[in-house]
């Protein structure tokens, strides 16, 4: 029954990430909301790869072959890639937020409306 809550956490993480994206006005907080959603998706992948009382898929000094049960390796390889991509997106968005602040002296979305001579 406890594994049921794994999926609840995934859905709640993604849900609160999306809610923050709609209501938050500060640029940095939007980056944090994005990280929450990425964490939710990573957890979803790991939940797919779980096997009851399976060990990590590493054979060095693993228990005897008989009762060896291993967790699936592919989602963990993808999460490795997704974490680094999440880091990349966050690093770039924080850089752009710093530059926006340096040019416009505000981080609030409402004040950062589109170009002045817009339509």
């Amino acid at each position: 029954m406890t594994d049921f809550f794994l999926y609840v956490t995934v859905v709640l993480l993604i849900f609160f990430g999306m809610v923050a994206l709609i209501y938050k006005r500060n640029l940095i907080k939007i980056v944090i909301a994005l990280n929450i959603i990425e964490a939710g998706i990573n957890l979803l992948f790991i939940a797919l790869a779980y096997r009851p009382n399976g060990t990590a898929p590493i054979f060095t000094l693993a228990p005897a072959l008989g009762e060896l049960k291993m967790v699936l390796p592919t989602p963990q390889a993808l999460i490795l890639t997704n974490i680094v991509i999440g880091f990349g997106t966050t690093a770039l968005m924080l850089t752009l937020a710093i530059l926006t602040y340096q040019n416009n002296h505000t981080l609030d979305i409402r004040k950062l409306r589109g170009v002045e001579n817009n339509d």
Binding site: L21, I30, L34, I41, L96, T100, Q102, N103, N104
Partner: peptide, 20 residues
């Protein structure tokens, strides 16, 4: 310039959400 970094931020946010 005043606006390009914020435009880059918008594009990055849109792409990050879409890819998520």
């Amino acid at each position: 310039r005043k606006h390009p970094p914020y435009a880059g931020y918008k594009y990055m946010l849109v792409s990050a959400i879409a890819t998520s």
